[in-house]
Structure formats: C-alpha cells, structure tokens
C-alpha cells in the first residue's frame, strides 16, 4: 500500500467532530463513493445485492448503500472504505454500466441528533428549501445550500448526511456549524 498520507476534505489530519446541544456535526472522511449510470437499453442491475432506489430515495444494504441521482443514475456508498478502489469493485459487480470514481469528489458531513428527529428538522428548515416530504427518512436529493450544490441524505429521523463538493468543504462546514450553533443558542 502507498506510503502517502491522505488528509481530510477540511485539510486536517483527523476528521473534526463538534457538538451543538443535541446535534453533533462531523466530517466523515472514510466514505467511499462511486457513480453508476445505465447504458442504453440496459436493465437496472442489483450490484452487491442493492435494490437501486427510485427518484428521491436512498437505500442501505450490507456495508453498502445507494441513492438516486438522476434518470438511470445512482451514487453508491461504501462506509469506511474511502481508501479502496470502490469504483473498480462496483464496475465488477455491474458489468456493462458506466462507473466513475467519486470518493474524493465529495466532502461528507454527518449530523446526528441525540434527541430524535426534531433537532434535525429544525436545522434543515434553516438550510434547504425543500418540502418536509423530501426530507423524510429514506429520502435523498440534490439541492442548493448556501449557494452550494449538495446531496442531502436523510438516513433516519435522527441522522442526516450532507455531501458537498470536496473543494468547498470549508464553506459547507461553516454553513452547517453556524446553523447548528444558532439552533443550540435558540434553545
């Protein structure tokens, strides 16, 4: 294996994690990502046992997950496996599809609540202009957040992941932490 040392999207050695009352905001520097697009006339595959979801949805399988990103296109996730060539594995498991490495295209931020869904809903109200139905558990969509294009993935009522362009990680971290702090201050 290589002896080069990676850094996080925020440019640090370790991924930061900060608590704001019931919410904790942390970078997940270990999420592997690969895009999968269907070729013309192809059937929808079930790579690694995943039933690829429909528009606006996400699914989680055994050690992998996926969310819909466009007609015939999905983003596959491999928690903890950012150092691996996950795209190569997906390509093997979905022959004939167009697979692209996306791991370091994105900075991933996890927001976890220790008080149920309400703090997460209150935070989302300040960040994205989406109707609550698009933010229910099991939903995932791309939208605008503080002038940045982001994927918002509601894994559970008390768990949210936000993916933004890796190069803009600092701006996204600022937006998320300021909003979380304000929710904490508002009580």
């Amino acid at each position: 294996m290589t002896d080069l040392t990676p850094i996080t999207a925020l440019g640090t050695a370790e991924a930061p994690s900060v608590a704001f009352g019931p919410l904790t905001v942390a970078e997940d520097a270990r999420l592997g990502l690969a895009s999968l697009a269907l070729r013309r006339g192809a059937d929808v595959p079930e790579p690694m046992g995943l039933k690829l979801p429909g528009p606006g949805d996400c699914v989680a399988g055994a050690g992998v997950g996926a969310f819909w990103t466009g007609p015939g296109q999905w983003m596959l996730e491999a928690p903890g496996r950012a150092e691996e060539d996950f795209a190569a594995e997906v390509a093997r498991n979905a022959p004939g599809c167009s697979v692209t490495e996306q791991t370091d295209g994105w900075a991933a931020f996890d927001i976890v609540s220790d008080a149920g869904a309400a703090p997460v809903d209150a935070l989302l109200e300040r960040l994205v202009n989406l109707p609550p139905a698009s933010l229910l558990p099991g939903k995932a969509t791309r939208t605008v957040l503080e002038h940045l294009g982001v994927f918002v993935i509601r894994r559970a009522g008390d768990r949210l992941t936000v993916l933004g362009m890796r190069s803009a990680a600092g701006s996204l971290w600022h937006a998320l932490t300021v909003a979380a702090k304000r929710r904490e201050d508002a009580g």
Binding site: P55, G56, P71, P131, S134, V144
Partner: peptide, 10 residues
C-alpha cells in the same frame, strides 16, 4: 416530473 415541485433556484 420525477421529483415534484422544486424551487426554481435549483
């Protein structure tokens, strides 16, 4: 048509 009503700013 697939995602429902969305803000024009997207």
């Amino acid at each position: 048509p697939l995602l429902g009503p969305r803000d024009a700013q997207e």
